[in-house]
Amino acid sequence: MVERRLPRTVGTVAVLLFAAPLAVLVVQAFAEVWRYPALLPQRWGLRGFEVAFEGDQALQATLDSFEVALISTAAAILLAWPAARALARGPARLRTAAIVFLALPLLVPPLATGTGLAEWFIRLGLADTRVGVALAHLTVVLPYVLLVLIPGFNPRLRELEEMAASLGMGPVRRLVSVTLPGIRAVLAAAALLGFLVSWSQYGSSLAVGGGLPMLPLTLLPFVGSDPNVAAALSLLFLAPAVLALLLASRAAREAL
């Protein structure tokens, strides 16, 4: 009985928390005319998208955001992989100290980090460049990726690696056929989270790359002035999160 009722509960919650709020966004993105107090738009159309992509500022911002998110996530994984391996074991005191230090950037307002970095990036010629913005994002992407990755290198994975080594498997083969399959799910979650964190960054993008606006910087001015365009850009901005949602629900279904 409980089992049969459950999917419906899940559905209700999903609708209340997401589908309903987001549906408004979809409606608004295609609403050319939507005068108060009508509940539905008077005229539908693609004006929001046309205005949003007039010139190629929005398109450029999307591509830039995508590239920056990829760069910072890739860099974070490269840095976090060995660190997570080290932090999954060893003396508890050192481990805690290292994790606290590495997680500290999470707490600090991103605008503060960005403003401070801009001081140096302007001199180094990194301000208003994709690499500069990616570096600023890395400050927060790295701790998130690290925190997700650490539990992946659990004793069970290490035992499997030891088993493989005892069977005469070299480091590269071990990585490919034992470590990567064992940590695949965690790694995917870390990469996804890292990408979303970079993609959503506002404060540090503004401070370091005000002249190279990322997608959220392009979106924000429209929120007050033109809800139709803001909604169209929001749908674009939301796409990776929706993708993450679909992947997560598929993973959850597989887990069941």
Binding site: P21, Y202, V223, L245
Partner: peptide
């Protein structure tokens, strides 16, 4: 409850703050 419901409830984690703010304005 089962993992499906828990996952569903944890979904806002993926939505950017800015989008949540946009939604709040729309509603």
């Amino acid at each position: 409850r089962g993992p499906a419901l828990k996952t569903t409830f944890s979904l806002p984690v993926t939505v950017p703050h800015l989008i949540v703010a946009v939604l709040a304005v729309a509603w």
